[in-house]
Simulated scan of single mutants.
Amino acid sequence: MRGTVRQRGRGVWQVQVYVGRDPDGRHRRKARTLHGSKRDAETALREMVSEVESGQHRPGDDHLTVPDLIAERIMMREPDWSPGTTNEARVRLRVHHRRADLPPVVKVRPQHIDKWYSDLRAQGLGPAKVLKLHVDLHAALDLAMRWDLIAANPADRVDPPKVPRSEITVPTDEQVRELIGAASDDMAVWLRVAAVTGHRAGTLAALRWSDIDLEAGSVVFSRAIARGSGGLVEKGTKADRADAVTLDPHTVAALRAHRTRMAERVLAAGVALEGDAFVWSADPRCERPRDPNSVGQRFLKLRRSLDLPDGITLHTLRHYAASKMLAAGIGSAVVADRLGATTRVIESTYR
């Protein structure tokens, strides 16, 4: 590791250490000026060399931009995030963070962040979207603190926009019956299971016949389907746990009829319906799951054909299930367990 000690004046020394090349290929050095003896300067040089060798100073740290820091954090967190979460973070990085007029990380101050948020609001960006950008930025600057690039997080001293609480839409019993009655056979079963269990489209799409016990009248949700950069992927549920849910006799009967139809379809393709076959699939052999996004698009077409309110979406069937259970006197903890949520979320959403 190369380093130099230069005397800049009486009792004034400059210590400089080469830290390597930055991402643009330019040579970078870390320098420090101190007052004292030459021995003090040589001690400081050894300490700086040790810091560089241990990775505490990286090439280009002084010039590291906020977007590049956020990009590094995304790469670090990607193994633990769902594909959807990763894709959304990359879209925010590309569309907003890359265009932010912010100085390098080591020079960011609260006033820079305040001005950026004001500019975003002036451009018409809503408070909820600005808040997501604030979460990205705050987490990235926390990472910079852990890397000893900055001593404090400037985002701590910035007030993010307050997001007004929005009212949720809960379909009525009549609207749910109308949707199920007008849907095609496989879509009708999907809507019934969604309305009864309250589970998300991703977990419904991941269901295999081995997850359903028609004799016991129960289903286990342990996986979810999400769209990643390379297409559909199977992952853990959002709550990262398996949820066993009991089914009413009418829903069990609907699933039995659906299984019979699927068995006939795969038999026409020359195979038998196996336990690992997906419950909902456009594939003749039921070996590939339905895309949750395509199911959502089918739902929107169905809703428009019935001239139902725009606020009713596939996800509002989750609100319907939760509201029905709470209205029946079921405790929020039990509802949370059934929906694969937390008690806090249930109580704050449906209070």
Rank of each mutant, 00 (worst) to 15 (best):
T316M: 01
S294K: 13
L302Q: 07
G311A: 00
I312W: 00
K301P: 09
S305G: 11
P309E: 04
K301R: 12
P309L: 05
S305F: 07
D310E: 13
R304D: 15
V295W: 09
H319Y: 07
T316G: 02
R298T: 10
L306Q: 10
H319P: 01
Y320A: 03
T313W: 02
Y320D: 02
L314N: 10
L314A: 11
Q297A: 07
S305Y: 06
S294I: 13
F299H: 11
G296K: 09
Y320P: 05
L306E: 08
P292W: 01
L300S: 13
P309T: 06
S294T: 14
N293H: 15
I312Q: 00
N293D: 15
L308T: 07
L306F: 10
N293G: 15
H315P: 08
P309I: 02
S294W: 12
R298E: 07
R318M: 01
L300Q: 15
H315T: 08
G296S: 09
L302W: 03
L308F: 12
K301Q: 13
T313Y: 01
T316D: 02
L302M: 04
P309K: 03
Q297L: 10
F299N: 07
L314K: 03
I312R: 00
N293Y: 15
F299Q: 03
V295S: 12
Q297H: 12
H315D: 07
K301N: 13
G311Q: 04
L300T: 15
L317V: 12
N293T: 15
T313G: 03
L302Y: 08
L300R: 14
L300W: 00
L317M: 11
D307M: 05
G311I: 01
